[in-house]
Design a protein around this nucleic acid. Sequence first.
DNA 1: CGGAAGGTTCGATGGCGGTCGTACCATGAA
DNA 2: TTCATGGTACGACCGCCATCGAACCTTCCG
Lengths: 111, 111
Amino acid sequence: MARPRTTPRTVEHPDLSEVTLQQVLEALADPVRRMVVSQLARAGGDKGCGSFDTPVSDSTLTHHFNVLREAGVIRQHYRGTTKLNSLRADELEARFPGLLDAVVTAAEAEA
Amino acid sequence: MARPRTTPRTVEHPDLSEVTLQQVLEALADPVRRMVVSQLARAGGDKGCGSFDTPVSDSTLTHHFNVLREAGVIRQHYRGTTKLNSLRADELEARFPGLLDAVVTAAEAEA
DNA sequence: CGGAAGGTTCGATGGCGGTCGTACCATGAA
DNA sequence: TTCATGGTACGACCGCCATCGAACCTTCCG
């Protein structure tokens, strides 16, 4: 948006100390976003943007990734034309102990 | 609503097995509802409807209580003209281990 | 240098949910 | 029985957010 033409694509990630419980809960309260988090948790490491199984369009998925990133839940970086995603599990655990685990576990159990 | 005139006021509570993670997360994602839950957690036991410190009107608060009850987060029962509320902490812990604790703890830490 | 693949941005839209005020109901006390 | 209290039901409003399609931008590969 504010990026001038032809600049390497970078992504802004908040420090977890700036992230509120409200943001994280809102992020995790959406079913599609929880699918993303679940699949990311199952994958363990990085996972390409296009490799997620969701019922929404690409542009909507981009939106969800943004919400998750701004909530400090995921980390994103480019490699070539592909955007890789990973969970910020450890940092999140330090900030909100038990929260991500509980949600991921519950999501797994329900599915 | 469907209750005929002059019937003792009772409240419907879902079995926690019928409650979804979605419901619980949506319930806990609202700031006002989280205030209610926090104050309930701090109180330990029952707490009258009118004794909560929130920034919303009575009718809105009633709405939030309904959401929390339908999500299996709180239990309500009448005593005289007063409605008492309590957390369904143990049941919730059995259904979604660690979830309520994590949220309550985080909410306390942030406040 | 094309062109294709992978994502993003933009604008529009639709629906849901939080909010309120008012009217109403049940209970207990005077 | 009448009144006051505590809470609910209802209807309306408003703002936000998930969603989409289309246009666009980057990067890689022929």
